[in-house]
Design a protein around this nucleic acid. Structure first.
Lengths: 117, 117
DNA sequence: AAAATAAGGGAAAAATTATTCCCTGCGGGA
DNA sequence: TCCCGCAGGGAATAATTTTTCCCTTATTTT
């Protein structure tokens, strides 16, 4: 893991949530898993704009924070599945709300941004 | 403005919201303004962990997205106030939910992280 | 005259995150 | 045998974001 130089302030709830949801693909990954996309290769296909390596790394972080847990089915071909933990489940409404706000306000944001020539 | 090299995908609502809330201090700024901290220098004091320059920049972005609007009161000393726009108001429940989830789950996250030695 | 307050920006450096490239190991099919 | 798909990691690089440093303008206070 990368060792931070600037200490993070976890007093603020916003920072805690952002630690979990802030990565470029973390919310998408949680959303996908909640919809039943559990296997790494399926996630790579589902979130094709992200490089597989990136998804792996963010999965590892989500696992570290106890948002998902990884089940390894030994045997061959090796099978791995990720599941949401109760804490992971508990953040889904937030992810849904974030997605919803974004969809509702996308046009506004895009328009504003284009307005600056 | 910095010119992105990797295009952003605003199809996904999550990305739209993160554009607005993703900066390290944007949610804090929106929260502060909603609580009546309107003047730049007050914001600098209220969010003292952030360098003033950073707050200025994030304010400018929030203004670009139409989340806040800036009122300049000419005269001396010059007075500036930021207000939430209706769109800015509409994201407050989301900011509150993000803060709340973080506060509720802070201990869990911290514990998990410390558990990796 | 010097310093403080108000608002803010340019440029560069530092920090952080994301991405790419390539490698491992296992077993199955052509 | 060679290549494919599975799961995943190391190292380096690129991209992005945050921070620091210092400068500007105008008025008021000491």
């Amino acid at each position: 893991m990368y060792e931070r130089k600037i200490p993070e302030d976890l007093e603020c709830g916003i920072n805690v949530s952002m630690k979990v949801l802030g990565g470029k693909w973390k919310a998408c990954i949680l959303d996908s898993i909640s919809k039943g996309v559990r296997r790494p290769s399926e996630l790579h296909t589902a979130i094709s704009s992200a490089a597989p390596r990136v998804i792996n790394m963010q999965l590892r972080e989500l696992e570290e924070y106890g948002m998902v847990c990884k089940k390894i089915f030994p045997g061959t071909p090796l099978k791995v599945e990720y599941y949401l933990t109760p804490t992971g489940e508990s953040i889904l409404p937030l992810v849904a709300a974030i997605d919803q706000w974004g969809l509702t306000n996308r046009d506004h944001i895009i328009r504003m941004q284009e307005a600056l020539q």
